[in-house]
């Protein structure tokens, strides 16, 4: 196997250098399609990441009419029984609510001697943003809360959901399109190399070369073309993301944070290795298999 490896690499190098222009064209196409692929992944992953942050902050605030602690706790326990509710229901005393409000607004709002006007509040969290409305319905219909006593993000959640869904579906569609394009380009490049070496391959078959012996140098070529294009694109995207992330964190720090540079680099390079390798391998395998089948 090892001595064959030397032969495979020699043949691979011969193929690449014999048709430098075509190899360059294939690497460039692989690079551009992987660049688009990587950009889509970058956007889709960040949308998911930001959506997850927003969703985790989705809360239903229930203002209580009573100021009896035991009644409030009993209510909280009733709400807790609903399976859509995530974690314990948080009980916010009027005092705590006031402190938080003052902290958020950075001003003193109320004279300590006066009675606190804020009500007892129950903070309810759900597993999924889609569960907000059913939980609200449950609070109104089953537990008798008034609609005006409930505060929750109505359209925001739906809009985020729709937007992220559109971006995700569009992203997946474009990803498949780009992957197919890369596959075809690599297939075509390898096919040209195979055609250029048709006579040699035919002779190889007739003197007893196995199909795998013939196939390996072409597979190597496909893999190297796919990987080179994808790694260069991942590197460029990674550098661009580094600067973009840095700028975002300086200017838009108050918005939900995007994925960190290091984590994004890991994602980009993992995707680059997997997609570059698999598309290069698949493209070259298909084009050589067709030829070997035709001439078998």
């Amino acid at each position: 196997m090892f001595r064959n490896l030397v032969y495979y690499f020699k043949q691979f190098w011969f193929n690449i250098t014999r048709n430098v222009l075509m190899s360059f064209a294939a690497i460039s196409t692989s690079f551009f399609s992987q660049l688009i692929l990587g950009s889509l992944i970058l956007v889709v992953f960040n949308i998911n990441h930001i959506s997850a942050q927003v969703w985790s902050q989705v809360e239903i605030w229930c203002f209580m009419e009573t100021s009896n602690r035991e009644e409030v706790v009993a209510r909280a326990e009733q709400i807790q029984e609903n399976r859509m509710v995530r974690g314990p229901v948080e009980i916010k005393t009027p005092k705590k609510a006031l402190e938080e409000l003052e902290k958020d607004l950075e001003i003193g709002l109320w004279d300590k001697d006066e009675e606190n006007p804020l009500p007892w509040t129950l903070v309810v969290r759900v597993h999924d943003p889609d569960q907000v409305q059913p939980v609200v319905d449950f609070l109104i219909n089953d537990l008798g809360f008034k609609k005006d006593d409930l505060r929750y993000p109505k359209d925001v959640v739906r809009k985020i959901n729709t937007a992220s869904m559109v971006i995700k579906v569009g992203g997946y569609f474009l990803t498949v399109l780009m992957a197919t394009l890369t596959l075809f380009i690599i297939m075509n490049t390898i096919r040209l190399t195979v055609i250029a070496r048709r006579a040699e391959i035919r002779t190889m078959q007739l003197v007893g070369a196995t199909s795998w012996f013939i196939r390996w140098p072409f597979l190597l070529e496909g893999i190297i073309i796919g990987l080179t294009g994808s790694m260069i694109s991942a590197l460029i995207l990674g550098v661009m993301y580094y600067f973009g992330h840095d700028m975002y964190m300086r200017v838009l720090f108050f918005l939900p944070h995007p994925i960190g540079t290091l984590q994004m680099m890991r994602i980009l390079f993992t995707v680059a290795v997997i997609s570059g390798f698999s598309m290069g391998l698949a493209g070259s395998y298909i084009s050589v298999a067709r030829f070997l089948d035709e001439d078998a």
Partner: peptide
């Protein structure tokens, strides 16, 4: 292929 290795061929067009 393994069987072909036991059969040497001198082709008409040499190859």
């Amino acid at each position: 292929p393994y069987l072909r290795r036991k059969v040497g061929v001198v082709f008409q067009d040499f190859k």
